[in-house]
Every structure is written in C-alpha cells, then in structure tokens.
Computed example of a mutant assay.
Amino acid sequence: MHFGDSSFWRFLPLVHAGVFGATAVFGRIVIARTNRHDAVSFSRGESARDFVARCFYVWLPVVDGVLLAFYGLTGQRGQTVLSIFDGEWVRWIGAACMTIALIWVVCSQAAMGSAWRMGVDSRTATELITKGPFALSRNPIYLGIRVTIFGQLLVLGTWPVLVIWVMSELLVQVQVRFEEEHMFSLHPQRYAEYCSRVRRWL
C-alpha cells in the first residue's frame, strides 16, 4: 500500500496532535485555573521574550495543526525530503517517538504541579522542581516537544514538516534560555547547583 493511501498514517499525526493539545495544553490550563493561577505567562508585549513565546506556543502549533489537518483530509503531504522517509520502519519509529513523548510530557507536567507555566512568569516566584523527569533533564517538557516534532518528521518526511522541525528547534533553544535565565534570578544558588548535576536536555 502506498504511504499516501494509508488512512492510518494520514490521521495518526493529526490524532496525536489533538490528544497532545487536549491533555498537555488545554487540560493543564484548565487544571491551573482550577487551582487559581494563570498558566499562560506570555502576553502581547513587544519584548523578545514575549515574541518568542508567541511564536513557539501559538503560531508554530497553528501552522503545524493546519498542515496535519490538510494532510489527513486530502492525503497530500508534498515531496519527501529523502527516500528513506518512505520506509515503513521509519514511520513506526516516528509513531513510537510521538507516543513516548506524549507520556513523558504529561508526566513532566504532573511533576511540576502548580509551578507549570507556558512561558516565563515574572509575576510569581515559582518553585524549583528537581524530582521525577526533572532529575534527568532540566527541560523535560521541551524535550518531549522536540521528540514529538521529530516524530512527525519521521512519519511525514516532507519539506514543510522539515521546516517546522527546524523552526521549532530554533525557537525551543531560545525559549529554554529565557526560562533558565529566569530560574537563575529566582533561585541563584540552588539552580546553579541543579545545572551542575543535570543537563539541559539529557
């Protein structure tokens, strides 16, 4: 069966994105509001920090979602980057990456509890979380997002997804540095000690 004719591969990335959005984004926002704090910490401000956050948290997911919806509904994915992306085993690796990443992100968010935010919250002194997935990675949620987009690239393997992957990699590298700078200002000594024993990614 040709890749473009398989309903499973057409809709898998779209369904995964829907589940990811419902659980790891909207679900967490609802939980945060139930606990009476605003988890969305970026605004319409003109600072570089706000601009990067909007690109990463809003525009990148919108573009990614439109692309996945278009492919799922039409079966048109565009030209593949390399012939290797037509291999069934590559797509299964991509599917495994997306599944594991979703579980990893949800567990990491649960470990953060009420400290979870989207962006840098300069209004509230949040707790420094060092247990659970944070004992392995300083940025486990962003790590999970990176693996998710990479998994999409393996499943679709087209130029538009490659561009999204490159953009997400650039944005996440900038975003984590903004957040790490903020954590240094909140917990100078503790965060420095934490950084000395736990890597940024893995």
Rank of each mutant, 00 (worst) to 15 (best):
G4Q: 08
V19T: 12
F20R: 03
A22W: 03
A22R: 08
T23G: 03
V25C: 00
I29R: 00
V30W: 02
A32K: 00
T34V: 14
N35F: 05
R36I: 05
S43E: 07
R44P: 00
A48W: 03
F51N: 06
F51K: 07
Y57T: 02
L60D: 10
G65F: 11
L67V: 06
F70N: 03
Q76S: 10
T80Y: 11
V81K: 01
D86Y: 02
G87N: 11
G87R: 12
G87P: 01
E88Y: 02
W89L: 05
G94R: 08
M98C: 15
T99K: 00
I100V: 14
M112L: 13
M112A: 02
R117Y: 02
G119I: 06
T126W: 04
G132A: 02
G132R: 06
A135D: 04
A135L: 11
S137A: 08
R138L: 09
R138F: 02
R138E: 04
N139W: 09
N139K: 11
N139R: 09
I141K: 00
Y142E: 08
R146N: 14
V147E: 05
G151W: 10
L162E: 11
W165T: 12
V166H: 00
L170V: 15
V176P: 06
F178C: 05
E179G: 07
S185D: 13
L186P: 07
E193W: 01
E193C: 00
C195F: 10
R197P: 04
